[in-house]
Amino acid sequence: MEELLQIKDLHVNAENKEILKGINLKINKGEIHVIMGPNGSGKTTTANAILNNPMYKKTNGSIIFNGEDITNSKTDEIARKGIFMSFQSPEEIPGISVTNFLKYAKNKITGEPVRIFEFREEVKKYMDELCMNSNNMERSLNVGFSEEKKKKNEILQMLVLNPKLAILDETDSGLDVDAIRTVSKGIQMYKNENNAVLIITHNTKILSSLKPDYVHILVNGKIVKTGTGELAKEIEDNGYAKYK
């Protein structure tokens, strides 16, 4: 199996406080990984650290993606190398329409001009699959979108930008059962043997339709246990108490 991402002994501070205290993680192509953990355990920090959000400071460790050290690469470079992150709370950007934004990002990531007609058709197709109203294509990005719409829009971006690794940070939070099903469908459409998914969540609802290869339990900045899908079930039944 081909290795896609490797995180080695990663320590990360946020607001001068150590949040991640030595994370190790390896993701191969074709795999679905899940990081679970209670609130404040460092899940979102992990996602942000991979994308090198300047608000999170790495104090030790490294991140290798596709054989390349991306520990200190700029966020946009990391994105262009093929890592995508679905945000827990996507930003609202007035004045930039959903399609224009996608077109622009697609062009930046592929480095190729986007053929407008085909592109619009593709976006429309994905929108239909995600039960999104294509009238929203011309609306300002995320402005006034409901939580569900914002999350679906993140999945839409993932499908259109087609990254090598998709990190989904709490994409399931705040969604009802139907919406979670739609989001899962989106993930299944995206997933193939050449890419990988890292799902960050604190509940197990989204895992019912996706079969994770690995489940990692993150508590207090460290991965305390790694297992298979069974582990998620155990957490569902018993919570994190025994790992604290």
């Binding site: 994308l51 700029k74 966020t75 946009d76 990391i78 994105a79 262009r80 934004f101 930046k108 990531i109």
Partner: peptide, 13 residues
């Protein structure tokens, strides 16, 4: 800064 990060995470400088 959050908005800038969001856009950069989509490959935009």
């Amino acid at each position: 800064d959050k908005t800038i990060f969001y856009l950069m995470s989509r490959g935009i400088s």
